[in-house]
Every structure is written in C-alpha cells, then in structure tokens.
Amino acid sequence: MSVSWAELLGDEPTAADEPERVGVFARLRDSLAKSRRALAAELQAAAFDPGDAEAWERLEEALIRADVGVPATAELVRRIEARGGASSLEDALVEEVRGLFGEPPRLRLDGKPSVILVVGVNGTGKTTTIGKLALKLNQHGRSVLVGAADTFRAAAEEQLEEWARRAGADFVGSPRGADPAAVAFDAVEAGRARGKDVVIVDTAGRLHTQANLMAELAKIRRVIAGRCEGAPHETLLVIDATTGQNGLQQARLFADAVEVSGVVLTKLDGSARGGVAIAIAYELGLPVTLVGLGEGIDDLRPFDAGDFARALVAG
C-alpha cells in the first residue's frame, strides 16, 4: 500500500487521505508505461533462468537503463543472486530495493514553526515542489509561510509568489540580489511572529561544484539554525528523475554542505525511472521523502519504495 500524506506527516488518517491511497501506483505505472521499452519483458519470471548468464546480464542492463548506476546495480544483482530461486525475480527485486530504502519516510515537523529548507541544482523543480508542498500541508491543517531566498534567478520570486497564492500560504520576498541568508532570516522571523506551523525556504539553484555558492547555502542553514531551535527540521534535496549518475555527486556534495535529510525526486511522470535515487540510498543512505509525478498541484506524493521498485520494472 502506498504511503499517505497523513502517514508522512505523522497524522491520524482523515477522509482527505482516502483518494490518495488508491491509484498512486496505477498512476505511476501509467505514466511509466509511456516508455518505449518494456523492462518487464526482461524481468518476467518465466523468461528468467538463474543458470543463464545472459539473463543476469539483461537484468543488469535493465537496471543500468533505469539510471541505477554500475555499483548499485552490481549490489542489487548480487543480493538477488544470493536469495536463490525462492521468489519471482520481480518480487525479489522489489524487496531488495525496499530494503535499500529502509523505513517509510516521515517529514519531521515538530517545531513551532518547523522549517523546511529546499536545495538543489538548477532546473530540478525546487520552486514548483515548494508550491505543491505548501498546498498539501495547508490541506492537512498546517499554516504555511514560504520565503523566497532565491535572489539570483530572474523572476524566481514572482514564480514562488504565484505558487504561494495558489497554495494559500503567506509569502516573504526580497529584492533581487539581496543576501539570501537575510531573506531566510526574515522568513523564519515572520513565521514565528505570525504563529505559522511551517516555514518553507526556497533557495537558488546551484551546481554542487560551485564552492562559493555551496558556502552561501551553508550560511543560510546556519542562520536558520541560529534563529530557531532544531531548525531546519527538514532539508530536502530536489533531484530531477532524468538525472544520470551525476545525481549521486549532487547528493554527496549537498549533504556535505547542509546535512540533507531527504530527497525529493521530481519529474517521474516522464519515462525516466529515477534509478539514481537507488544509487543515492545505497551509497549515501539518504532516503527519498517525496516524488513529483506531474505538473498538477496534486502531483506531489509521499515516496513509497514498493511502488517505486515496481514502477522500476513495470512495462
């Protein structure tokens, strides 16, 4: 069964959650079915002979094609081999992938206000994710304020403000070129003064290789931590599912700079399967918290490792 928003937030399930429970997997499978290649054909238990070296090679290739990467693929295959032939290949793969991701995700929002810092490279969908997250939190009874600490990209503030309006969230902006740490400070202060439950801070996209910009990000985090006990409660790294093995390097360097607590995997509605999340979980132990499945405001979902693994091998 899929993870619901109530579970993600540690709430009692409400009527609002019910429609979310059904159809998530169907939806994911549906969008992935658009892919030209049928991974399933490679993985059907009937077609798989554990004694057939070529079959193992095809499995490896299918995982590589899903961007799982060479080391994590080798590890998965090794684990599946070690299980022997007790279960079908698909079941074995799903269980091993689940094992890699560990416990279902939780958003730790126990502060007053709780602060969520959102980081990532350019163009992964940070601002869009924040808009959708703000709406979801709002629907689940949390009052939200979003702060636009992306003071670099042209019109980033306007984009976030529009999302805040749609999500019914308060908005703290800043002039372009302002010190992003100061904006983060203002947002947290405003959230506290107005008694908000959650403050979400957007940051400018930056390549993880830009040392000075990563230092700037670390400063934003320090300023937030200094203003509010236990903050930021969550630091979410947004990764585009179309990203290849560089995603691992992104996760590594962002984690070094700002202690990332979870990954948001966006744009899973394309034909990309986002296998790099497996590489990230395997090599860095970072969980995926949320997935983005489309352009609609409802298309941000709690991550479910089982669904993800099944979609990975679905046709």
Binding site: R36, D240, T242, G244, Q245, G247, G270, G275, V276
Partner: peptide, 12 residues
C-alpha cells in the same frame, strides 16, 4: 539538453 541527463536522453 542538460549535461546531467541520464539514460533517458535517447528517448527524449
């Protein structure tokens, strides 16, 4: 095309 694109680049 983003230089960081993975295996999907071909389908795209």
């Amino acid at each position: 095309l983003d230089a960081m694109t993975g295996q999907e680049a071909v389908n795209v």
